[in-house]
């Protein structure tokens, strides 16, 4: 009962806390305020811990990990993005891109908090460890793809400022073009590998669990189409030596495709690939 109360509080609080975090990162980015600069890291770490606590409490309260609905997966994706950004910020010491990446985490968490439902009765197969690996890999894959797109967008913004000799806040505060391109590429490769793992696990596990399994299932086809698209993109980059603006546009197009495809597929009622 107490756990459920905490879940109810956190489901409302998280979007507001994310709004605060994005605001702090936004002020640090646009105003370069020293006090806010000092505040943003502890705030981010505290919020990440709180978000993980929320996911843990949710698992305990409803007796299943939050992977059964789109909105449960969205909060998981939001936490994964925050975690990925924490890793990136500490690993590279590039502290000025949080506004953009955490902004995406805020959007996912807000949508999740508004629409999430408390499911207590779920099918037995949702307790499977394999499903946990499958969903985790898919989440990491989509997190990588999303982060690659954000860095791609930042690259294009900076590219435009440098090309047009309009040196504004983007020019002042972002890291250089080469770094943004490298970060986008690494996130994309990471996302692609994670997505590959999710697909392989799914292809082995799903036919055993679902009687109505079909290789023509929209979600399966959509995911494989996304995988093929990224495979072609990464291969072209390697083989044809594509660099710079063109590849960043491709990262954004890929992300847009993923977003639209996933939205359409998840709304589609014909898929067996829904876990509730």
């Amino acid at each position: 009962m107490v756990t459920k109360t905490f879940v109810d509080i956190l489901v409302v609080a998280l979007p507001f806390l994310y709004t605060g975090l994005v605001t702090v990162y936004g002020i640090a980015f646009f105003r370069n305020a020293v006090t806010v600069e000092r505040l943003k890291r502890p705030y981010m770490l505290a919020l990440l811990v709180l978000h993980l606590v929320y996911l843990g409490l949710r698992t305990v309260a409803f007796d299943h990990p939050p992977i059964t609905t789109v909105y449960e997966i969205m909060t998981l994706l939001s936490a994964a993005m925050t975690m990925a950004y924490v890793y990136l910020e500490f690993r590279t010491n590039i502290r000025n891109t949080g506004f953009f990446i955490l902004g995406l985490a805020l959007i996912f968490q807000t949508v999740s908090s508004v629409f999430i439902k408390d499911l207590t009765v779920i099918p037995e197969y949702l307790h499977s460890l394999v499903l946990g690996f499958h969903v985790s890999a898919a989440m990491l894959g989509y997190t990588g793809i999303s982060i690659a797109a954000v860095y791609g967008l930042l690259y294009l913004m900076l590219y435009h400022e440098i090309k047009s000799s309009r040196f504004g806040v983007i020019y002042s505060r972002l890291p250089n073009l080469e770094t943004l391109e490298t970060m986008s590429h690494k996130a994309e490769v990471f996302g692609f590998v994670a997505l590959s793992v999710a697909i392989v696990i799914g292809l082995f596990w799903l036919p055993r669990v679902f009687r109505e399994f079909s290789y023509l299932d929209p979600k399966l086809v959509g995911t494989i189409a996304i995988w093929v698209l990224y495979a072609i993109g990464l291969m072209s980059k390697r083989r044809l030596g594509w660099q710079g603006r063109k590849t960043m546009i491709l990262a954004l197009v890929g992300f847009a495709f993923v977003f639209i495809a996933m939205a359409v597929i998840n709304i589609s009622p014909s898929s067996f690939h829904t876990f509730h």
Binding site: L158, I162, Y171, P175, N176, L177, E178, T179, T182
Partner: peptide, 9 residues
């Protein structure tokens, strides 16, 4: 400065 905004190293 501009070179450092285009190239990383």
């Amino acid at each position: 400065e501009l070179a450092s905004k285009i190239f990383a190293d």
